[in-house]
Each structure stands twice: as C-alpha cells, then as structure tokens.
C-alpha cells in the first residue's frame, strides 16, 4: 500500500539532521523534508570562529555533501522560513507564501542569541557569532578592526577572545555572571577568568554594563556604568541563547521558554514533536524544566524524537554531568541550562 506520509523537520542543525536520517532509515516510503531559514547547508557551528579567522574554508564547515540528501531522498528547503503552523489542518505557512502539508512534524529550530532587555536598544550595534550568516557578516569587518569588545560570555566567547587576542586585536571583555552560558559563573571562576585574561592583555569589566553605546563613523563609543569611556571597532554579544519559538506562538502548541514537551519529546499537539535547543523538558530529578545545550545532545534528541514519531516510546533523560575545561579551570556542568 503506498504511503502518503510527509514528515517535516523544521531546522537544519544536528537535531533536525539526525531526526531526518533516523526517519529515512526506518521508513523508506514517506516523504521527508527539512525546512530551514538558513541558506547555508548543515554546518559545524563550532568552527565558525576558525572560519572567520580564515583558518577554515567554507567547504570544511559542511557536515555532509548535498548528494547525501539526494541519495537519501530527503528534500531540503534552505532559506525558507516557516511563518505559522496550523495544527488543525496540519499546514505550514512559509514566508515566501507557500503552504506545505505535513502528517507529522518535528520542531528542531534551535536557538538564537539573546540580548538582555536593558541592552536591547543597542542591539543594532552588536555582532553575533551564532550562525553562518553572522560569520559571513562579521568576516569582512573583523580583519580591519583593531579594538573589539565582547559582552556577556560563554564558552565560545572565551575561546573567541583568546583567538582575537592572538590575532593582535585589543580585546575588552564585559563579563556578566548572570548571562554566562550555559551555566552561572561562580565568583572564583570569574576571577580565574579575569586573571587568565589579564595575562593575555584582555581588559575585563566584571558585571559592569555599558550605559550608552553610539556609533561614530564605523566605530562605536561605549560608556560604562562606572563612567569609563572607550571606543571599539566591533562589539560582539554572547548573552546566551533563546529558543526560536516566536513563530510557534498562537498555534496552539504550548511554549514557555521553549517548546514544552514531555519526556517522549511530544508536544501537547498530537503528531508534533520538538527536540534540540528549542525544546523545554521537565525533569523530576532537577525539579525543573531544562533546555538542551550542545551538539551531541541535540543529535540524541533528534533521534529520540524521530523514533517516537515512528511509534516507539523512548524517554529522554539529561545525561551525566560532564567536566568542561574553562580557561584552565575544571568546571562541572551538565548539558542543560536551568531556567
């Protein structure tokens, strides 16, 4: 009997791709489509730093060649944005004015950089490093830049600051405890980082916000809360990530910080699943909701969501705590971010 199933995955990151592969592996009949608003094919996000510094070329970023999708008969819709989901009719409304029907849907939309509301009025001055398109934007700006400011902080930003400093840039780091990602920075970790940075001649402001940022020609003037003034050529913002769920709101799929799912990664609407950085899951151990962080975990969630979509009932659990190396300091963290 021919099947008319159409499984759609929104999002072309590790969660979306592993979900697509699992679906195809277990079901060679159904249509499988990935829709992504990014124009560039599935890439290694962590290599973006190397990409903008010129160490890695564009092709090295690609996780797999286009032919792989052709062989697996996975339809790829790049550069297409889903504007609205209508679960009653199982229809997606795309920004370029196309309606697409699904029989089952996996949301793997990932997350976007967050800017704290008090700084949101300066957002237009900030550069980000979370997507390939960000990197493309930043790349030509970076080489002529001499002075760089970094706001917030996460593991990538520390690595990035080190890299910039090695590129002989003058780096100023505004280190915010609250915004550190994916965990809160303890005081001793913060001071260790400060110490480490001063060794690399990176100026650090700890928990001091800019109170004014203005563009002056191609540069930016920053006035800090404690009255210091500095001029920089480019400002990077690393204040953690927020799940990409805006377009889901109002559809009847429940969201809070992320898309609310149960331990099977099912949303409140039947036939719709969520996984990866956009999913918000309750965990009894933590007595809290959590959101996945990181590449591998997204992949595991993608697989789980796909298997459950196909009728299994696998339970997702936060993995064991893991030790991360932050600038020489051993830090215990898990792969989740408490909300």
């Amino acid at each position: 009997m021919p099947k008319f199933d159409h499984y759609i995955i929104i999002g072309n990151g590790p969660a979306g791709n592993s979900a697509a592969e699992v679906l195809r592996m277990h079901d060679d009949q159904a249509r499988v489509s990935i829709i992504s608003d990014e124009g560039f094919p599935y890439y290694y996000r962590h290599m973006l730093c190397e990409f903008i510094s010129g160490k890695k070329k564009e092709d090295a970023l690609k996780v797999k060649p286009a032919s792989d999708y052709k062989e697996k008969n996975i339809r790829m819709r790049l550069g297409q944005r889903v504007e609205r989901i209508e679960p009653e009719t199982k229809t997606l409304y795309l920004k370029h004015m196309e309606k697409v029907k699904f029989t089952r849907l996996i949301l793997a939309t990932g997350a976007s950089p967050h800017v704290v509301p008090s700084l949101s009025r300066f957002e237009k001055h900030f550069s980000f490093m979370s997507k390939y398109s960000d990197a493309l934007k930043v790349k030509p700006l970076l080489s002529p830049a001499r002075k760089v400011a970094i706001l917030g902080g996460d593991l990538v930003s520390l690595k990035f600051a080190k890299m910039l400093s090695a590129m002989k840039k003058e780096v100023t780091f505004f280190l915010y405890k609250d915004c550190f990602y994916p965990f809160e920075l303890t005081a001793d970790m913060a001071s260790a980082i400060e110490k480490h940075f001063s060794g690399k001649k990176i100026k650090t402001f700890a928990d001091i916000f800019p109170s004014r940022i203005e563009s002056k020609g191609k540069a930016f003037e920053i006035e800090t809360e404690n009255g210091e003034n500095l001029t920089v050529d480019i400002i990077f913002c690393f204040m953690g990530m927020r799940p990409n769920i805006n377009f889901i709101q109002g559809s009847g799929i429940d969201t809070e910080r992320g898309v609310l799912v149960d331990e099977h990664l099912k949303t409140n609407v039947s036939d719709i699943y969520a996984c990866g950085d956009c999913a918000q899951i309750y965990n009894p151990e933590l007595k809290n909701y959590w959101i996945s962080v990181g590449w591998e975990n997204a992949g595991i969630q993608g697989e789980t969501a796909a298997l459950n979509l196909l009728g299994e009932s696998k339970v997702i659990k936060p993995s064991q705590k893991k030790i991360l190396d932050v600038e020489g300091l051993k830090v215990n963290t898990s792969w989740w971010k408490e909300l």
């Binding site: 509301p117 709101q249 109002g250 809070e256």
Partner: peptide, 19 residues
C-alpha cells in the same frame, strides 16, 4: 505561561525593559 496572560504586548515589553 506568558502566552495565556491577558495583557497586551506593549505592557509586557515595558515590564521586561524595567528588568
């Protein structure tokens, strides 16, 4: 969740802006 709050977006935004 926020979705079910019966107030308009302007107010929410101003509140968030005020931290």
């Amino acid at each position: 969740t926020e979705t079910f709050m019966r107030i308009d977006e302007h107010e929410k935004h101003e509140a968030k802006t005020e931290k």
